Deep mutational scan, measured.
Amino acid sequence: NKASVVANQLIPINTALTLIMMKAEVVTPMGIPAEEIPKLVGMQVNRAVPLGTTLMPDMVKNYE
């Protein structure tokens, strides 16, 4: 099973992601793959992301 990106803390709306906000975890359903973490740094979330939430592509602005 591949790990996904999971919020390590509450991430407020429009916050630019940093490494300490994210962790890799095997979850179902899968979200953004953990190997994308370096690419996510500096990208903004378009909603508040609660602690423990799996990051999905539609939660990150301009994620492709």
Rank of each mutant, 00 (worst) to 15 (best):
P33H: 06
L10Q: 09
M59I: 10
A24N: 06
L51K: 09
T18M: 05
T53C: 09
I37R: 07
E25W: 14
P12Y: 14
V45G: 01
K2E: 15
E64K: 15
L10I: 12
E25H: 12
L55C: 02
S4C: 08
K2F: 15
T18F: 12
P12H: 08
P38W: 12
A7P: 01
V5T: 06
A34I: 07
A7C: 05
T53D: 06
L19V: 03
A3Y: 12
K2N: 15
V27T: 08
I11Y: 01
G42C: 13
V27K: 04
A7H: 01
Y63P: 02
L10D: 11
A3H: 05
R47I: 05
P29F: 12
V60R: 01
M22N: 00
I32E: 00
T28M: 10
I37E: 05
A3V: 09
I13C: 14
Q44A: 05
P50W: 15
Q44M: 12
V6P: 01
E36M: 04
N8H: 13
L55H: 00
I20M: 13
I13R: 10
R47L: 04
E35I: 06
L10M: 07
P29D: 09
E25R: 14
N8L: 14
N46Q: 12
N14P: 02
V6C: 11
T54V: 08
G52Q: 12
P29K: 13
S4Q: 03
V60M: 06
V60P: 01
M59C: 06
T54K: 04
T18H: 04
K61Q: 11
E35F: 04
M59D: 05
P57K: 12
A48D: 06
N8K: 11
V27E: 02
I32L: 09
L55T: 00
I37G: 05
E64R: 11
P12D: 07
A34W: 12
N1G: 14
L10T: 09
I20T: 14
Y63M: 03
G52M: 07
V26G: 03
P38K: 12
Q44E: 09
E64F: 07
L40K: 00
K23A: 04
P57Y: 14
V26I: 04
V27M: 08
K23F: 03
A48S: 06
M30L: 09
P33A: 09
G42L: 10
T28W: 04
V5M: 02
I20V: 12
A3D: 14
L40E: 00
V5E: 00
G31R: 03
N1M: 14
I13H: 05
M59T: 08
V5S: 05
I37W: 02
G31C: 07
P57G: 14
L19N: 02
P38N: 07
V60I: 10
I11P: 00
S4M: 03
E35Q: 05
P57V: 10
N46W: 15
M30G: 04
V60N: 00
V5Y: 01
E36D: 11
V26K: 04
P50S: 10
P57W: 15
M21E: 02
G42E: 08
P29T: 13
M22L: 10
D58T: 10
Y63K: 02
I11A: 01
V5R: 00
V60H: 00
L19D: 02
A16E: 04
E35W: 04
P50E: 11
G42I: 01
I32N: 00
K39E: 03
M59G: 07
S4L: 01
S4K: 02
M30C: 14
P12S: 08
E25T: 11
I37Q: 11
I11V: 14
M21S: 03
P33I: 10
K61M: 09
Q44T: 13
G31Q: 03
M30E: 14
N8V: 08
P57I: 13
K61E: 08
V45D: 01
E64S: 15
M59A: 08
A48H: 11
Q9E: 14
G42Y: 13
M21V: 04
L40F: 02
A48T: 07
I11G: 00
T28R: 02
V49L: 12
M22G: 01
P12L: 13
V60G: 01
N46L: 15
G52A: 07
L19W: 12
V45C: 08
N1I: 12
S4Y: 12
Q9D: 10
P50C: 14
P57C: 14
L51W: 15
N1E: 15
P12F: 09
N8I: 08
A7G: 12
A7S: 04
A16L: 07
T54N: 02
N62Y: 10
A24L: 05
L40Y: 03
A16V: 09
M30V: 07
L51I: 09
N8W: 15
L10W: 11
N8M: 15
R47F: 13
M59Q: 07
P29G: 12
T54Y: 03
N14E: 08
M59V: 10
M22F: 14
K39F: 09
T18W: 05
Q44V: 14
P38G: 10
L51S: 05
I32C: 04
A24F: 14
L40V: 09
V27C: 09
P33R: 12
Q9G: 09
P33N: 07
I11M: 06
L40D: 00
M30Q: 06
Q9C: 11
L55N: 00
E35C: 12
T15L: 06
T15K: 06
R47M: 04
K61G: 11
V49I: 13
P33Y: 07
T28D: 14
V45P: 03
V6M: 14
E35L: 06
V41H: 08
T28V: 07
Y63E: 02
E25G: 09
A16G: 02
L51P: 06
T15F: 11
M59K: 02
M59E: 12
M30N: 06
N1F: 14
E36L: 07
P50M: 12
P57F: 14
V6I: 13
L40S: 01
L40W: 02
N8T: 14
I13N: 12
V41M: 12
A3C: 14
M43I: 04
L19S: 04
N1P: 15
A7T: 12
M21Q: 03
N62Q: 09
A7K: 01
E36C: 13
N14W: 11
A7M: 12
V41R: 12
V60S: 00
P57H: 13
M43N: 04
I11F: 01
M56C: 13
M56W: 04
Y63V: 03
G42Q: 13
E64I: 14
N62K: 13
I13P: 08
N46C: 15
K61T: 11
A24W: 13
V5P: 02
Q44P: 13
E25P: 02
M22R: 00
M59L: 05
Q44N: 06
M43A: 07
V45S: 05
A3N: 04
A34P: 09
N62E: 10
E35K: 06
